[in-house]
Simulated assay, not measured.
Amino acid sequence: MGYHLCIDETALSKGDLYTILINRDKRGRKGSIIAAIQGTKTDDIIAVLTKMPQELRNQVKEITLDMAGSMQKIAKTCFPRAMQVILIGFMYKNLYMKLYKSCALHIDGK
Results as ranks from 00 to 15, higher is better:
residue 36 A to Q: 08
residue 44 D to M: 03
residue 37 I to G: 04
residue 33 I to G: 03
residue 76 K to W: 05
residue 65 L to G: 00
residue 6 C to K: 14
residue 35 A to G: 01
residue 70 S to I: 06
residue 34 I to C: 00
residue 48 V to L: 09
residue 16 D to E: 15
residue 84 Q to H: 07
residue 108 D to C: 13
residue 61 K to D: 06
residue 11 A to Y: 13
residue 54 Q to D: 15
residue 88 I to D: 15
residue 109 G to M: 07
residue 99 L to T: 12
residue 66 D to N: 01
residue 44 D to A: 00
residue 93 K to H: 13
residue 27 R to V: 10
residue 53 P to L: 09
residue 72 Q to N: 11
residue 105 L to A: 09
residue 61 K to E: 10
residue 85 V to F: 10
residue 96 Y to V: 01
residue 14 K to W: 09
residue 2 G to N: 09
residue 48 V to T: 13
residue 12 L to N: 05
residue 34 I to G: 00
residue 110 K to G: 04
residue 74 I to C: 02
residue 47 A to C: 06
residue 81 R to N: 15
residue 95 L to M: 11
residue 94 N to Q: 15
residue 68 A to M: 07
residue 75 A to G: 08
residue 26 K to I: 09
residue 41 K to R: 07
residue 34 I to V: 09
residue 13 S to Q: 05
residue 51 K to G: 12
residue 106 H to D: 12
residue 14 K to V: 13
residue 97 M to G: 04
residue 76 K to N: 00
residue 102 S to W: 11
residue 6 C to F: 09
residue 31 G to L: 01
residue 67 M to I: 09
residue 62 E to I: 11
residue 96 Y to D: 14
residue 57 R to M: 12
residue 16 D to R: 10
residue 63 I to Q: 03
residue 103 C to V: 14
residue 59 Q to Y: 01
residue 48 V to I: 14
residue 55 E to C: 11
residue 23 N to D: 14
residue 66 D to F: 05
residue 110 K to P: 04
residue 12 L to Y: 05
residue 78 C to M: 01
residue 34 I to K: 01
residue 72 Q to W: 03
residue 19 T to F: 06
residue 62 E to Y: 05
residue 104 A to H: 12
residue 95 L to G: 04
residue 105 L to V: 00
residue 57 R to V: 11
residue 83 M to G: 14
residue 8 D to G: 06
residue 24 R to V: 10
residue 78 C to Y: 02
residue 57 R to W: 13
residue 79 F to S: 00
residue 30 K to I: 08
residue 10 T to C: 13
residue 75 A to N: 08
residue 8 D to A: 00
residue 21 L to F: 00
residue 25 D to G: 01
residue 110 K to R: 13
residue 94 N to I: 06
residue 11 A to L: 12
residue 59 Q to P: 04
residue 6 C to E: 15
residue 50 T to D: 11
residue 86 I to V: 14
residue 65 L to D: 07
residue 38 Q to M: 13
residue 12 L to H: 01
residue 5 L to K: 06
residue 12 L to F: 10
residue 21 L to P: 00
residue 30 K to V: 10
residue 84 Q to S: 11
residue 5 L to G: 00
residue 10 T to R: 06
residue 5 L to T: 02
residue 109 G to K: 02
residue 11 A to I: 04
residue 37 I to N: 03
residue 51 K to D: 11
residue 83 M to E: 15
residue 72 Q to V: 03
residue 89 G to C: 11
residue 65 L to A: 01
residue 66 D to G: 05
residue 86 I to R: 10
residue 42 T to Q: 05
residue 58 N to K: 13
residue 81 R to A: 02
residue 105 L to W: 03
residue 13 S to Y: 07
residue 100 Y to V: 04
residue 29 R to C: 04
residue 43 D to P: 03
residue 64 T to G: 10
residue 28 G to V: 03
residue 93 K to S: 10
residue 1 M to G: 08
residue 39 G to E: 04
residue 10 T to P: 07
residue 2 G to I: 04
residue 69 G to T: 14
residue 3 Y to K: 15
residue 78 C to I: 04
residue 22 I to M: 14
residue 20 I to Q: 05
residue 65 L to K: 06
residue 110 K to C: 12
